[in-house]
Amino acid sequence: MSWAIIQQSLPLFAKGFVLTLKLATLGIIGAIIVGLICSLIYYFKLPILTPIVTIYTEVARNTPLLIQLFFLYYAFPILGWRLTASQCGIIGLIFLGGSYMAAGFTGGFDGITKSQIEAGQAIGFTRWQLARYVILPQGLALSVPALAANVIFLIKETSIFTVIAIPELTNTALDLIGMYYHTNEYLFVLVIAYAIILIPLSLILTYLERRVRYGTFGH
């Protein structure tokens, strides 16, 4: 292992690091929005939209991100939509992540006890008030652990973006290895780079889970 080689590669890795963070952030925000909308449609069994959501989540969860990206990158242009590689990456992450987030939110909503909902009904809440004052606050709090796991999962999935040549962390490492053959150094930096993102994030999310649970349920 050579420090000099590692040092020389750092500016390139820094770029990849920033791009990984940027794509992951946009993808995760989009996935949370899509997931929340889908889970609400599913929870309230809205006509027409519920089967669409079911089909979407089944397709998204049961096909690999790799194939989804190929589809966006190679098949969409045939249909006339030309997207940049980064756009494909973000859309792919939202497509995949949205279905996972939907499942996470649904798990949270399903975890609300029936008696809490009945207590809301018993004081005359309308459907909307029940959602606003009982289902959303409690369901969201219950879904935080699943959402946190999804966030970590989706960040790691960005490594697959390398197949459509997005210069994120993994792509940077593989490119450098291809050019200079310093496999050990570049893989070492790659692992450290992911660890720098994921370990602190994981700790923060665990702390957040506890805070939210205590704030909502008091234990």
Binding site: S115, Q116, G120, I123, T126, P137
Partner: peptide
């Protein structure tokens, strides 16, 4: 559903499990 929602304001109910809203 709409009628029950109105009537429940006049028919109060208390449960075995209290079910106050914890948040």
């Amino acid at each position: 559903a709409k009628q029950w929602q109105q009537l429940r304001q006049q028919i109060g109910m208390v449960f075995q499990s209290y079910d106050l809203f914890p948040n």
